[in-house]
């Protein structure tokens, strides 16, 4: 937090530090996840795939990210 440009979010129940103003698309690319292979909820609200690039993360945001799973 020394430069004040990092924020803390909670992803799938675990705290994570990300750059301030990071978009969800940037976050996914950082975590090597494909936007068309995840479902995301932010603070209890589903995020439409079309707006993944517009949503900017804020300090304290709670994300739930579900990845495509196919086994049976």
């Amino acid at each position: 937090m020394s430069d004040g440009k990092m924020i803390t979010i909670v992803a799938n129940g675990k705290p994570r530090t990300v750059r301030v103003d990071c978009s969800l698309v940037e976050l996914l690319s950082q975590w090597r996840l494909r936007p068309d292979m995840v479902v995301i909820e932010r603070n209890g609200e589903p995020v439409p795939r079309a707006s993944l690039g517009e949503v900017r993360l804020r300090d304290g945001d709670r994300l739930e990210i579900a990845q495509m799973v196919g086994g049976g």
């Binding site: 799938n12 129940g13 479902v39 909820e41 209890g44 609200e45 589903p46 439409p48 795939r49 079309a50 739930e64 579900a66």
Partner: peptide
């Protein structure tokens, strides 16, 4: 809704889903 089960943490989470207009 999508129910996600994490057996290691025994965490059950509901994600609200949207009907995709596209």
């Amino acid at each position: 809704k999508l129910l996600v089960v994490d057996a290691l943490r025994m965490r059950f989470t509901h994600l609200n889903l949207l009907k995709d207009p596209a």
